[in-house]
Amino acid sequence: MSFPLLQVINLKVELIRPESSKSLLQEVNFELRSQELLAVIGESGGGKSLLIKALLKLLPPHFKVSGQIIYTDGNEQPVDLNHLSEKEINVYRRRKIGVLFQEPLSGLNPVLSCGTQLRDAVAFAREVSFAEAHEIALNLFATVGLLEPAAIYCTYPHQLSGGMAQRVALALALAGQPRLLLIDEPTSALDCIARREFMDLIQNLRQTQDLTVFMVTHDFANIAQIAAKILVLYAGLPVEYGDADRLWRQPHHPYTHLLFTTYQTLQKGETVAPSSPKLSDSASSSNGCSFAPRCPVVQDHCYPNFPSYQLLPDGTRLYCHFPLSP
C-alpha cells in the first residue's frame, strides 16, 4: 500500500541580500507517494536543482527556505525536514534520502578507488565494519548493473566512462539504503543508449529496492515512460503539477503545452519553430506571470497580475489565468 513519503507544502526559497531579497522558488506544493517517480521539468535556471538542495537543506545561509517538507517513513512520526537542526537532518541525509547530482565525476574523490569510497560510505551510513561494508559495496556495484564489481572496486574515477561513473555515483547514493532518491539531471552527460539503460535501471531499483524517486530531468523520451507525476517549473513557480499520463495527453498550462508539443514535433522529425519572443526577452516580469512575454494565449490581464492558482477537476494543479481547455 503506497503512502505519502514526502509532502512539500508552500515551499519558498528566497535569496537574502543586505538591501533586498529575491524570491527564487515559490508556492511549491507536491506529494510523493511510496515507490512513485516524480519528474521535475522546466527551463535551465527555473529552480529545479535549487529545489533538490532546498529539500536536503543544502543551501548556504543567505538562502531562506520557508514552508514544510514532511517526510514520513512507514510507521514513524512525520518529520518536517525544514525545521530540523543540522545534526538531525544529517541522519536523514545519511540513511533515508540518497542524492545523485548532475556530474557524477564531480561527486567522486579522484584519489580514492571507487570501491574504497563506497566501502567508507557504507560503513559510515550503516554503521558496519569495513569487512562487511566491503561485501555490501560489491553487492551494490552489482545492483547498479556494473558487470565486474571486483574490478570496479579497484578502479579510480578517471578510468570510468560517463555511464559507469553515473552508476558508481548511484551506488554511493544507495549506500545508506535510502527510501527516497533525489536525482538531478542524471542523464544529461550520457548518450541516448546509456540514457535508456540508466532509466531502466532506476525503474528496476524502484521495484526491487522499494525506492521512491524525485528526478529533475530534460529527458522527455524517458520520463514519458516511467514518471507517475510531473511537476513543471517555470521561473521558480510550479506552473503545472499532476498525473504524468494526463499531463502528457492534455497539458493545461501554455508552457507545458509548448514543451510537449516541441518534443513531439522533434520526435516526428518535423521542423520546430522556436517560441517567440527569443530567450533574451524572457526575463521574468516583476509582479505578473513570468511566462506572459512568451505565452501564445497571453492577455493584458496576465502582465500585471500574479497567475491565479487553479485546481482542475482532473486533479491537476496549475498557476495560470487562462489555462488551455481540452
Binding site: 527551463e43 535551465s44 544529461s188 530534460h218 522527455f220 519553430a273 522556436p274 527569443k278 530567450l279
Partner: peptide, 14 residues
C-alpha cells in the same frame, strides 16, 4: 545542444 534545455535547444537549432 547537450547542455541546453529543450526550448533553448530548439531556438539554437533554428
Amino acid at each position: 545542444l547537450s547542455a541546453l534545455d529543450l526550448v533553448t535547444a530548439v531556438q539554437i537549432i533554428d
